[in-house]
Amino acid sequence: MLITNLNHVESADQHKKILEENENIMICCGRMGPMCLPVYDVMDELQDTYKHVKFFDMDFDSADAHVIKSAPECSGFMGLPFTMYYKNGKVVKATTSIQNMQQVSSILDEQFGKPE
């Protein structure tokens, strides 16, 4: 169970619904571990700025996390967290292991556009 200030994706059905209902999405799939917490924190910080992006996390150990773990874009990933960026339901970027504010912001700007 993740204890963060982000909204959680708790099932494959919810994951599907989120992708159908939102244009720009970032989901960080991890644990309460040293490589994951900094990414959740960065996302929490960015939520207010990037209002055109929906931010979520997902428990890596939940049964339904296969929707991210088995995505082709995560093939070869060997470090938590797995972070996915979706536009109109399609994966546009995926990263593995810890990312800092600059790296995440850069991806958000590139894939979804800078905040107004």
Binding site: G33, M35, F77, M78, S97
Partner: peptide, 17 residues
């Protein structure tokens, strides 16, 4: 190779190995 073999947390990434 961070996240593609280089890790700083065995508890997090051990199972990938």
């Amino acid at each position: 190779f961070k996240g593609r073999g280089v890790s700083y947390c065995a508890t997090c990434d051990g199972e990938f190995f």
